[in-house]
């Protein structure tokens, strides 16, 4: 995980986050900032954005599992089979297989063959 730069204004009215251009997070973040006696509170949630490789192409995703990734990419109920990092992931395990940054995912379907 890369370093996150942040600054809070003294008045607590503005929040500026400076993130590296290619910031990639590997898990869900939630931070609560509060102004102490001045009574304000800000909850900042950052969905984990993973960079993975899908069928040979880099992709950024907020999906946590392989099943979520398929939905996010629009495969829906398509007849596909999957592999992660070279290993077959059966349909029943897509819900439980959690993604990590840098994973290579293969999504295949029936095709003509000799």
């Amino acid at each position: 995980m890369r370093r996150v730069h942040r600054s809070l204004s003294a008045a607590g009215q503005e929040l500026t986050l400076y993130l590296p251009r290619e910031a990639v997070f590997s898990w869900q973040h939630e931070r609560i900032f509060s102004g102490g006696g001045s009574g304000w509170e800000l909850t900042l949630r950052m969905a984990a954005v993973l960079e993975v490789v899908v069928n040979g192409e880099r992709a950024k995703t907020r999906a946590r599992t392989l099943a979520e990734l398929l939905i996010e990419l629009g495969y829906g109920e398509a007849k596909v089979a999957t592999a992660r990092n070279g290993d077959f992931i059966p349909l029943r395990k897509r819900d439980t297989v959690e993604l990590s940054g840098g994973d290579t995912i293969e999504i295949v379907s029936p095709r003509q063959g000799g």
Partner: peptide
């Protein structure tokens, strides 16, 4: 037959 990479918007498979 074979298996090949499928794009999300293709429905070829």
């Amino acid at each position: 037959v074979s298996v090949r990479r499928e794009g999300a918007r293709e429905k070829g498979g």
